[in-house]
C-alpha cells in the first residue's frame, strides 16, 4: 500500500468528518440511488408496454438508460467525488465508443453501402 493510497484512505474512509460531506456518502444515500435505479428500470419497461408512446419510445428509452448509466458511474463508481483524472480516462474512451456505435449505425442503416440494389430474390 503506497503512502498515496493511504492518504486517500483517510479521506475516503474517514468517519465523522463533515468538511466534505459528498466524498463519503452514507449507505442511505446508496440505497436511495438504488431505489431511483429501480424506478427508472420499471419506467423503462412500462414505457415499452404503453402503445401510445410507440413513436417516442426510442428517445425516451435512451434518455432513461443514459440516466441510469450516469447514476451508477457517478455515485456507485464515485466519479462524482473522485479525481477528475479517473473521469478523464473513462469518459474519453467512452466518447470514442459512442462514436463507433453511432458511426456504424449510420454507415449501415442511414447510408447503407452498395450504390444500387437488385431485388431480394436474385
Amino acid at each position: 500500500m503506497s503512502a498515496a493510497a493511504q492518504d486517500q484512505e483517510s479521506v475516503v474512509g474517514g468517519t465523522g468528518s463533515t468538511d466534505e460531506p459528498a466524498s463519503h456518502p452514507t449507505w442511505r444515500f446508496y440505497v436511495m440511488i438504488g431505489l431511483i435505479l429501480t424506478v427508472i428500470t420499471a419506467a423503462e419497461v412500462a414505457v415499452f408496454y404503453i402503445p401510445a408512446l410507440r413513436g417516442v419510445l426510442v428517445p425516451i428509452l435512451l434518455v432513461l438508460s443514459g440516466a441510469k448509466f450516469a447514476l451508477v458511474v457517478m455515485f456507485y463508481m464515485h466519479l462524482r467525488f473522485d479525481s477528475p483524472i479517473f473521469s478523464g480516462v473513462f469518459v474519453a474512451p467512452l466518447l470514442l465508443a459512442v462514436l463507433v456505435v453511432v458511426a456504424l449505425i449510420v454507415l449501415f442503416h442511414v447510408l447503407p453501402h452498395g450504390m444500387g440494389t437488385i431485388s431480394g430474390s436474385g
Binding site: 480516462v89 474519453a92 474512451p93 459512442v98 456505435v101 449505425i105
Partner: peptide, 16 residues
C-alpha cells in the same frame, strides 16, 4: 475505458 470500446464494438455489431 478500454472495455467501453470492446462492448461498444459488440453492441455496434448487434445494431448493424
Amino acid at each position: 475505458g478500454s472495455e467501453t470500446l470492446f462492448f461498444g464494438s459488440l453492441i455496434s455489431t448487434y445494431m448493424v
